[in-house]
Design a protein around this nucleic acid. Structure first.
Length: 188
DNA sequence: TCTAGGATCGGCT
DNA sequence: GCCGATCCTAGAT
């Protein structure tokens, strides 16, 4: 599930070099029964095709015409996926700064899905790639890091108010390695 | 072909 | 912390 992705290392390799980041913030989308999900109502357009593909693959889409968002497909036949919202740099710091801009503060480097994709140079071309395949351009590595449960904050999802109650479902997981996080139920 | 809306970001206060 | 730019995608005609 989404929780298991926290602490995992997302690696992106390109001609410019390699970037690795540790995932700290994810959001789950539960498929046809989730109004906030792109596969709500069993929708199956070209864009969401990879969400119905194999588990462990990437689903990359463009939002607001200018940003990309990277998801991990969890249950392909169910159209479920997990949106990667935030991370901290592990290696390739210079390349990340180069892509994000030299004036961007460390705090704002990877704290959003669009920023994450920019730092890792992820775009629609990466849609459908196998994230379990370490010889690929993009994959997820596991170095054994497991967040302490008390350091993980659970809350409602961001930017999906249009989905009504579903926006408040406790499907957003934020790992705060430095501090403590209270466990919050739906509604705060 | 046209229209409406969106899983965001960055600048300004 | 708040607000508006931006243009791709999907659905309707």
């Amino acid at each position: 599930m989404a929780w298991d992705l926290l602490g995992k290392v997302l690696v992106s390799r390109s001609v410019d070099g390699t970037v690795a980041v540790r995932l700290t913030e994810v959001e789950a989308y539960l498929g046809p029964d989730d109004p906030a999900c792109h596969t709500a109502g069993r929708k199956r357009t070209d864009r969401v095709q990879s969400m119905w593909g194999e588990a462990g693959r990437a689903y990359v889409y463009m939002i607001y015409g200018l940003h990309h968002c990277l998801n991990v497909v969890t249950v392909g036949e169910a159209g479920e996926a997990i949106l990667l919202r935030g991370a901290v740099a592990v290696s390739g710091d210079e390349l990340i700064r180069l892509r994000r801009g030299p004036t961007v503060s460390r705090k704002h480097l990877l704290n959003g899905p669009g920023k994450l994709c920019q730092a890792l140079a992820v775009d629609r071309g990466d849609d459908g790639v196998d994230l379990c395949d370490s010889v690929g351009r993009l994959w997820i590595a596991d170095d054994g890091t497991i967040p302490r449960p008390e350091a993980v904050e659970v809350s409602g999802r961001i930017g999906v108010d249009y989905a009504g109650d579903a926006a408040h479902w406790p499907l957003r997981f934020v790992w705060r390695p430095d501090g403590h996080a209270g466990i919050m139920g739906p509604g705060g």
